[in-house]
C-alpha cells in the first residue's frame, strides 16, 4: 500500500504545487480568450503595472507564444512592461472546435482584436497595447493594421522580420541568396556551401516561384544563417529568459507540435498569397520596424518596403548588422533598447 500512498502523494503535491501571482508589478497569470470556436491562452507576464502591455504575436504558423519567452531580451522587457504571450488559434495550447474553412487570416485578425480588447478590459482602457509581430506574426499584425480601423485599438506596432508580403518575400529572398553567396564566395567563407546556394538560386525562375521553392527558401535560409554564424557575420544569442520546460512547462510539446503542423498546413495556400505592402499605406500609428541584416527567411527588402509605404509620422527602421531572422536573440541588447526607446516615446 505504501506504493499507492507514494503515487497519490506525488499527484497531490504536483496539483497543488503552483500558485498564481496577483502582484501587478511582476505578474504571472494565464487567461483564455474565446473567439469564434477557439479558446486561446494568453500568458500574462512582466510588469503589467507599468500601464503598457506588449502583445507578442508569434511566428509560424505553427509556433506558440511562450517560445518567445526563451530569450534574454524577454527578461529585460518583462522588467519594464507587461507582455502578453498569446497562443493563436490552433497553435500552442489553444483548444476549441471549428471547421477547416474557419481557419483564415481574417478570423485570426478577429481573434487578435479580441485579445487586444481583453487586455484593455482586464487592465483598464488606458492601458497601452503595443503589438509585436515576428515572422508570421508580422503577417498577422500587418493584416490587423490594414483591416478597417483596428490599428487604432493599438498604441504602437513593432514589426520584427515580419512576412507581410509573401510573393515579394520569395523574390527578395532569391536575390539576397545570390548577392550574399557572391560576397561570401569572394571572401572564401564556406565556399562550397555558398556555391551550392548560388547554383540553386540561379535555377529558380523568380517570375514563377512555386510552393516547393517557398519551402526550400525557408530551409536554405536556416542553413545560410548557420554558416554566417560560423563565420561571425551573425552574433550568437545568449542563454536567458524562461524556456518552456520540455516536459514540465505549460506548453505541451506534443500538443503544440501536432496542432501547429495541422494549422500550418491549413493556412499554407492562403498565406502564400498574402501581399500587403501597398495596403500598409493605411498605417498611421507609431511603428517600429526591426530587422536582421542577414535574414534570408524574410529579407530586409521587406523592411524598407514597409518603412517607405506606411504613413505614420512616428516611424523608425533599424537593421541589426549582426542578426539573422531573430534579432531579439542575436542582438538582444540592441533589440531591447530599440523597443524600450520606442515605447517610452509613445
Amino acid at each position: 500500500m505504501r506504493l499507492f500512498y507514494l503515487i497519490t502523494g506525488m499527484v497531490i503535491f504536483t496539483f497543488f504545487g503552483c500558485k498564481k501571482s496577483t502582484d501587478l508589478t511582476q505578474i504571472e497569470e494565464t487567461i483564455y480568450v474565446r473567439s469564434t470556436g477557439a479558446d486561446m491562452p494568453v500568458y500574462l507576464r512582466g510588469r503589467v503595472g507599468s500601464g503598457i502591455v506588449i502583445l507578442l504575436v508569434h511566428g509560424g504558423p505553427g509556433g506558440n507564444g511562450l517560445e518567445y519567452r526563451a530569450g534574454k531580451y524577454s527578461e529585460e522587457i518583462e522588467k519594464k512592461y507587461g507582455v502578453a504571450y498569446w497562443d493563436q488559434r490552433g497553435q500552442g495550447m489553444s483548444q476549441g472546435t471549428y471547421k477547416k474553412a474557419e481557419v483564415t487570416v481574417d478570423n485570426m485578425v478577429f481573434d487578435m482584436n479580441a485579445v487586444v480588447n481583453t487586455i484593455k478590459l482586464k487592465y483598464g482602457s488606458a492601458t497601452k497595447v503595443i503589438a509585436l509581430g515576428h515572422s508570421w506574426g508580422g503577417t498577422l499584425t500587418a493584416k490587423y493594421m490594414v483591416t478597417d480601423d483596428l490599428q487604432y485599438n493599438l498604441d504602437g506596432w513593432i514589426e520584427a522580420d515580419g512576412a507581410h508580403d509573401i510573393p515579394r518575400l520569395n523574390k527578395a529572398a532569391i536575390e539576397k541568396f545570390k548577392s550574399e553567396a557572391k560576397t561570401q564566395i569572394a571572401l572564401g567563407n564556406n565556399t562550397s556551401n555558398w556555391e551550392g546556394i548560388l547554383i540553386w538560386a540561379n535555377a529558380i525562375d523568380t517570375s514563377n516561384i512555386t510552393n516547393e521553392n517557398g519551402g526550400d527558401i525557408n530551409k536554405k535560409a536556416r542553413e545560410a544563417e548557420g554558416w554566417l554564424l560560423e563565420d561571425n557575420f551573425i552574433q550568437a544569442g545568449e542563454e536567458g529568459g524562461v524556456k518552456n520546460s520540455l516536459l514540465f512547462g505549460p506548453t505541451n510539446l506534443l500538443t503544440s507540435t501536432v496542432t501547429g503542423m495541422q494549422m500550418s498546413s491549413l493556412l499554407y495556400s492562403e498565406v502564400e498569397e498574402v501581399a500587403l505592402t501597398n495596403a500598409l499605406k493605411k498605417v498611421t500609428i507609431p511603428t517600429l520596424i526591426l530587422w536582421g541584416k542577414y535574414d534570408f527567411v524574410v529579407p530586409p527588402a521587406l523592411a524598407y518596403d514597409a518603412f517607405n509605404t506606411i504613413s505614420s509620422a512616428n516611424k523608425k527602421i533599424v537593421i541589426f548588422e549582426k542578426s539573422g531572422h531573430s534579432p531579439m536573440d542575436n542582438e538582444w541588447e540592441a533589440f531591447t533598447k530599440e523597443v524600450t526607446t520606442f515605447i517610452k516615446a509613445l
Binding site: I31, Y32, P41, F110, T118, K122
Partner: peptide, 12 residues
C-alpha cells in the same frame, strides 16, 4: 481552461 476565460461576441 486554467484561469478566467473572456468571451468575444461577433463584433469582437
Amino acid at each position: 481552461n486554467k484561469g478566467e476565460t473572456y468571451f468575444a461576441d461577433s463584433a469582437g
